[in-house]
Design a protein around this nucleic acid. Sequence first.
DNA 1: CTTGACCTTCCCGCCGCTGGAAGCCTTACA
DNA 2: TGTAAGGCTTCCAGCGGCGGGAAGGTCAAG
Lengths: 139, 139
Amino acid sequence: MNIGTAAKRSGVPAKTIRYYEGVGLIPSAGRTAAGYRVYSDADVETLRFIHRARSLGFSVKEVAALLTLWHDRGRASADVRALALDHVAGIDARIAELQGMRRTLMALVDRCAGDDRPDCPILDGLAAGACCQSGGGAA
Amino acid sequence: MNIGTAAKRSGVPAKTIRYYEGVGLIPSAGRTAAGYRVYSDADVETLRFIHRARSLGFSVKEVAALLTLWHDRGRASADVRALALDHVAGIDARIAELQGMRRTLMALVDRCAGDDRPDCPILDGLAAGACCQSGGGAA
DNA sequence: CTTGACCTTCCCGCCGCTGGAAGCCTTACA
DNA sequence: TGTAAGGCTTCCAGCGGCGGGAAGGTCAAG
């Protein structure tokens, strides 16, 4: 099948498939005489794997590692698990950071009247240091 | 003061200050005869404001809007509040997305033995569709 | 034989910096 | 007065992960 069909079936846009080939995440696809890329059902499965891994937040580099493990029949599931847990730790860190921002922001928002007067604790907080010094904020 | 001093006092790296000037977030600094940028205490305050806003996750564009409101004595605090709440909504969306990823990932991790055998529900899940179809995952 | 959809390559832009090269300026010290 | 170190200047390139769009080749249907 052509790249457009592979794109539709895998959920990965054609441009992204070419990009993945360019950065070496997937091997170079075969070509027709006219130069069109050709894909098999197995290729589509790989693209779906990639798509799912990406949607779980794995970086392209991590996906490459996952693909290697996937294709390695002698892998240890501990390696996969460790990779996944590392990634979860990264997610947790980002969640914590975002929650810290949210907390600080909401504390300011709650003190802001939100009317047509100019007095604004949000701006005051940004001006006077409401994120990193007092309250033990994020980052 | 020179850019290095302003950087130290504001917490914004010199390169980033130049970048902010380049993209128009801050006005062009004055210069000495030799071409060195010159900053006042007020400029450092502005940089600190920017630094805090950025650390709360506001984009540079949003920070520009905040700065405009900050300098506008006739502003309505409702406008600032709305901007902040919009941003909180974005943060909430990102948190929800990350939590969705986390949930899906941990569900797979929990089923993985994590030993030296190759059987791995994580890889199986990625191969068979564990993120968007079943379970109602994120994104 | 034409039309329109598809494919190809290529390069630029996004965001928010960060690093580095090449070169000028300033300051401290001998 | 010389010189060495550190600061400053500009410009260019790259990170991740694509997306947009131009210029051109190909293919299937009418």
